[in-house]
Design a protein around this nucleic acid. Structure first.
Lengths: 180, 180
DNA sequence: AATTACATGTAATCCGTTACATGATTGA
DNA sequence: TCAATCATGTAACGGATTACATGTAATT
């Protein structure tokens, strides 16, 4: 699913500006499984408009660029529906953290405990952010489902780190000691 | 972390050919948090060789292209170590499945139960594959840690889907019924 | 005084995938 | 006989990021 389809989908949930779409993918309920920058969103919306899949009404603002509020057209809705026909490919997680852990064992094992600790902190922050979003009583059933799904995986990851970090540190120290 | 650094890291774990690196990222213990194709690996190795970060010995094979076995040089090891200094960015999961769920609610809610069911099956397969890798008694501590980490998150996700799929289906049916 | 939020957009660039090109061997 | 595994590589193309460009207003 590319940015194009993503915009279509977000607009299916409600009208929005490019700026708002960006906020949703980078902070909102979408943030933990997607990402997109202005540099891809604005051009996508422009093309979508040309193609008649979305339409745009402009709202004047003093001292700011006009707000362009996009809305899905019926052609856009059909295109989205079509895109949702083929079943989604597998989730792809890219984790520099896990890669770094694996590589660090060979090259800089002393850094591992700090890396793990810092990651635990990051996880907690991310979980707190998601939980805040989950508090919103107006979430649709699917949105709540998606957020809970993310929360469960995230918590499992955090718990794993919390309960196995020391074990790893010990094993690492044990293998190549200066120890006792 | 780009393919370049990834190659460096994998070679830190042991000498390998481009073909083997590709196998590791697409099937081995790396598969669940990384991906890279031949089209990026081979050029990366070529450039790394030019730069003296890896070196390559060729092994003749009858009726096949010569095998090029790459090994990390000390410069390469230093470069990898440097790359591992800055702490890894956040994990980025891109899930077309979750996006599709969210969007489908608006546009094709009837597809949701099938999507969830198919995803449960995919999760089971992936978990089984990872468990097989985890069986290998020769895994290094960090490798085992990484795999277990993945396994825990994956299982949490699977469990969530298994136990909440019906609930979602019911809510969806309830909201816009033709029901009773 | 500085940073963040609001608001849109373009251009240069990077990074990677897909498809192409070649070809033997082994197992189903 | 057909697919998969082994083995390397290039070229076209796509997709997205980063940095650039511009500017106000509110908050810290």
């Amino acid at each position: 699913m590319n940015v194009r389809t993503f915009c279509l989908g977000i607009l299916a949930l409600g009208d929005a500006t490019g700026y708002e779409i960006r906020k949703m993918v980078s902070q909102g309920p979408f943030s933990f499984f997607s990402e997109a920058s202005f540099g891809s969103i604005y051009p996508a919306l422009a093309r979508l408009t040309e193609e008649g899949l979305v339409e745009c009404r402009e709202e004047a603002q003093s001292k700011r660029p006009d707000k362009k509020i996009y809305r899905l057209t019926s052609a856009g809705r059909a295109a989205l529906e079509a895109a949702l026909q083929n079943d989604p490919g597998p989730d792809r997680t890219r984790s520099d953290f896990l890669a770094a852990l694996l590589f660090a064992e060979c090259v800089a094992p002393e850094r591992i405990p700090a890396m793990v600790a810092s990651r635990i902190a990051q996880h907690r922050t991310q979980i707190a952010a998601l939980e805040e979003i989950a508090d919103d009583p107006d979430l649709s059933p699917a949105a709540r489902f998606v957020i809970e799904y993310g929360l469960q995986s995230l918590k499992a990851a955090r718990d794993y780190l919390e309960s196995h970090a020391d074990g790893l540190a010990r094993e690492l120290a044990g293998a190549r000691p200066a120890a006792e």
